[in-house]
Each structure stands twice: as structure tokens, then as C-alpha cells.
């Protein structure tokens, strides 16, 4: 039970424990899914936005947030889902991108990357050996957010977080 007054910062800290169930090293905040926390007269309103429209992990994240709030003894809360503004991989924090890489998933490039603007294929660094000599095997991967790549240097396959 929380005895001190509920603060916005306190809720943000609390929700740091809620991870992406598909990539359990990155929190909903680092992923950019957690958009806003409001505390109005001790009522907590958490706003989240889906990554991919059909991502089944979204329902799990919502439930995990509710569980975390309930376990912390927050009596009055609501988790709202909004679609607009639409989520972009640019919202994944730098810390989040570092964690993705350490987990073996190549982080997304910036959507405004000059190469993307020119319609060129992105340069994706192998998260294992760091080589830039990599090739896309499939535009779709093991989850809605990932594509499948292969490193030509260390010959390992790896996931890349799709740039959206």
C-alpha cells in the first residue's frame, strides 16, 4: 500500500517494471508505448498506444500495467489506449535501443534516415559481431515488429526491429 501521495513520477518509476512480453529486457516506457501518466485527485490515468495494430503483446502489456498498479495499492486507476498520434520506432529511447542490441535484436534506424528518404536499403549492423555486411532474409520475422536478417561475416541469423 502506498502511504505517500501518488505522484506522476512515482507511477512512471513503478511502471518501469512492466516489460514487453516478447522482448522482456525493454520496458513499456523505453518502448514508447507508455505515452502519458496523469494523476488527478489521486486517480491515476495511464495512456498507452499500440506498436503494431495487431500485436497480441498489447493486451498483455495493458494487463501487466493494471497488475502493477493494483499490486502497488493504487485504488483508483484506468489504462486508456489511444491510436493517435501513431507510434513510431523513433519513440524507442536510446537506452531501449541499447538494450535491444544487447539482447541480440538490431535496433531500428531513424525513420528520417537519409538513406530511407532516398529509398535505399538500410545498413543494419549485426548485433552479434557488429559487422555491417548483412542481408535481409525476410521482411517479416518472429513477431509483428521484427524482420529477419543474416550476418555475412559471422554467418549468424538475427532479428531486426522493423523501422516504422
Amino acid at each position: 500500500m502506498i502511504n505517500t501521495p501518488i505522484t506522476k513520477e512515482g507511477i512512471y518509476d513503478l511502471l518501469e517494471a512492466v516489460k514487453d512480453p516478447e522482448v522482456p529486457v525493454i520496458s513499456v516506457r523505453e518502448l514508447g508505448v507508455l505515452r502519458d501518466v496523469q494523476v488527478i485527485d489521486q486517480r491515476v490515468i495511464v495512456t498507452i498506444t499500440p506498436t503494431y495494430t495487431g500485436c497480441p503483446a498489447m493486451d498483455v502489456m495493458k494487463e501487466d500495467i493494471e497488475k502493477e498498479l493494483r499490486n502497488a495499492g493504487i485504488p483508483d486507476f484506468e489504462v486508456k489506449q489511444i491510436l493517435s498520434p501513431a507510434w513510431t520506432t523513433d519513440w524507442i529511447s536510446e537506452e531501449g535501443k541499447r538494450k535491444l542490441k544487447a539482447y541480440g535484436i538490431a535496433p531500428p534506424e531513424k525513420t528520417a534516415d537519409i538513406r530511407a528518404l532516398k529509398g535505399e536499403a538500410p545498413v543494419v549492423e549485426c548485433p552479434q559481431c557488429g559487422s555491417k555486411d548483412t542481408v535481409m532474409v525476410s521482411a517479416f520475422g518472429s513477431t509483428a515488429c521484427k524482420a529477419l536478417w543474416k550476418c555475412k561475416n559471422c554467418l549468424e541469423p538475427f532479428d531486426q526491429f522493423k523501422c516504422l
Binding site: 499500440p50 503494431y52 495494430t53 495487431g54 500485436c55 497480441p56 491510436l83 532474409v137 525476410s138 521482411a139 517479416f140 520475422g141 518472429s142 509483428a144 529477419l148
Partner: peptide, 20 residues
Amino acid sequence: LEEDIALTNRALDLIGQARN
């Protein structure tokens, strides 16, 4: 295998939009 996964990924995006 990769194409099998690609088609179901497409399907997943479409079903997400259908739900909305």
C-alpha cells in the same frame, strides 16, 4: 519458412486493423 511467417504477419496486421 520465412514466407510462411511473412504471410501470417501480414494477416496479423490486417486482423488488428479489422478489430479497430
